[in-house]
């Protein structure tokens, strides 16, 4: 009796799997869309650069200053970064003063020579470290500046 139940259960499970494979590809778009809605299905800020906290609009371009990212597995890390994204029609040389912590004090000044691919910063906040990334992007230019807590 137990043996028969096992056989029936095994074969039933095999047929369920057959159906799963048959519906997998026609249903892929809708299964993927549902999966994308799961709470953990978003890219970690260490990759996206974090949410935009402040946007500065100039004549031909905008500067997005993102929220500083310190995300770790369980808690915030000691070291992180702030990402800056310039979009639009950028000048050859970019000079901006950044207040990323909104304390109305300049934390650092950034100088980008796009032609020479040269980026430097002057720090006024002891928690501002060095430039981690400075690169042209499809929308303009991005920089990540290292921070400590």
């Amino acid at each position: 009796m137990k043996k028969k139940v096992k056989i029936v259960a095994g074969i039933t499970w095999a047929f369920v799997c057959l159906i799963l494979i048959i519906i997998l590809f026609p249903g892929l778009n809708s299964f993927s869309a549902s999966t994308a809605k799961l709470p953990f299905m978003k890219i970690n800020p260490n990759y996206t650069g974090g949410e935009v906290a402040n946007q500065i609009v100039a004549e031909s371009c905008t500067l997005d200053i993102r929220k500083p990212v310190f995300d770790g597995l369980f808690k915030e890390r000691k070291n992180g970064f702030v990402q800056l994204d310039w979009r639009g029609n950028l000048p050859g040389k970019i000079v901006d003063s950044i207040d990323f912590d909104h304390d109305k004090k300049i934390d650092f000044c950034i100088f980008i020579d796009r032609k020479q691919l040269k980026t430097t910063i002057d720090q006024f906040n002891k928690n501002v470290k060095n430039i981690i990334i400075s690169t042209p992007t499809s929308y303009g230019w991005s920089v990540r500046v290292g921070l400590r807590k």
Partner: peptide, 9 residues
Amino acid sequence: AFTKSIIFP
């Protein structure tokens, strides 16, 4: 599970 995010760009 812990950060509710995907660690891939």
